[in-house]
Design a binder for these strands. Structure first.
Lengths: 189, 189
DNA sequence: ATATGAAACTAACACTTGTTAGTTTGGTTT
DNA sequence: AAACCAAACTAACAAGTGTTAGTTTCATAT
């Protein structure tokens, strides 16, 4: 099922270009040229430029949603749940840094699926928030403004797509441990 | 000097639109319509679409560069310097959340000034890094990977433009203190 | 009254955009 | 050999793009 179809090739090439210039600045001719074919030929495999964006973003958004639902439902401590979230982001991002750029920067160009996407995102943030708030209640997490904690962690995790490709083959495990440490314990001595 | 010229109005309106859809997706006709005039009339005040982007981004980038140079040269502790950086970002961002979106997302569409911008950004990051590394040397800052610490802090600070407008008139002072606390001491109990 | 100048306008341009229609190619199956 | 099919092609379209040229408007200064 997870075979490399021609359609998937197009989506991957497009995602790479979208990361460099953004969805709007990439033309169908750009994508075609990158594949060594003509723009019209793309339409044998995909129905529109929109569809390419949708395929990139929705798949990733659903992956995040499933991931956090599972973490939320698990029997771990709040801190361990947050560590799992860090691992989730690092894992998904390192498998698809190009797509993550679109997820972060081009979601507003979704049309049909914009509301669906926004719903997934709101749900994700709600789960994240509930993990934090529970942790505060249990005295596992510092009693600081949860919005600020969430904003700080999520900003960092959402920027991983910029940062991961610059590092030479970081081990997911090691990066995850180091980043969790910084996010959880801060930077002070 | 800092008068509200027609040119500045255009730049501000454009920045707002750029934040919503990105530079490439905004047309000169969009900008004109938002001002209640025709696209051709814009050219009485600006020379090109490019120029609008340049004015938005370069002014902000230079503001950050000046800010961090001053912090770096000051006589404060490393931790206090980092707190000042947090305040710098919050201060600049809350004055111009629209422009900050372009700085973060549309810099790659600079043409003439792309190299200049990249130089400013590299210099900024170098200053940030040196403050961190110095702090580690002085035993003021934890001996963790400075790249990861910088990445985490900068990611959060660079995302402020998304977050600040959602909060109802936060005091810069208060937000700065809370965010510094989270970034420096983390979230654990 | 006349001239000035900022700031709007109309009309048009050359080019690029996403997309469609119909056709050709070349390997695989019948 | 004939039929099939995925995947490429050429040619064209209607709409939208940034931008230019030349003109009009109208308040202010002479």
């Amino acid at each position: 099922m997870k075979q490399e179809t021609r359609k998937n090739e197009i989506i991957n090439v497009a995602a790479k270009l979208f990361k460099e210039k953004g969805y709007s600045a990439v033309t169908m001719r750009d994508i075609a040229t990158s594949m060594g074919i003509k723009a019209a030929s793309l339409y044998n495999h995909i129905s529109s430029k929109q569809e390419i964006l949708k395929e990139i973003i929705i798949a990733l958004a659903e992956e995040f949603t499933e991931g956090i639902e599972q973490i939320k439902a698990s029997e771990k401590s709040s801190i361990d749940k947050l560590k799992e979230i860090v691992t989730l982001h690092i894992s998904i991002t390192s498998k698809n840094t190009f797509g993550m750029a679109s997820l972060n920067n081009d979601w507003m160009h979704l049309e049909e699926q914009l509301d669906y996407y926004l719903g997934l995102r709101a749900g994700y943030e709600e789960s994240f928030r509930s993990i934090l708030v529970n942790g505060i209640k249990n005295n596992e997490i510092a009693n600081k403004n949860p919005e600020i904690m969430m904003f700080s962690m999520l900003s960092t995790l959402r920027s991983l797509y910029i940062w991961i490709p610059k590092k030479e083959a970081v081990s997911i495990k090691k990066l995850s441990a180091q980043l969790s440490d910084v996010l959880i314990h801060g930077i002070n001595k």
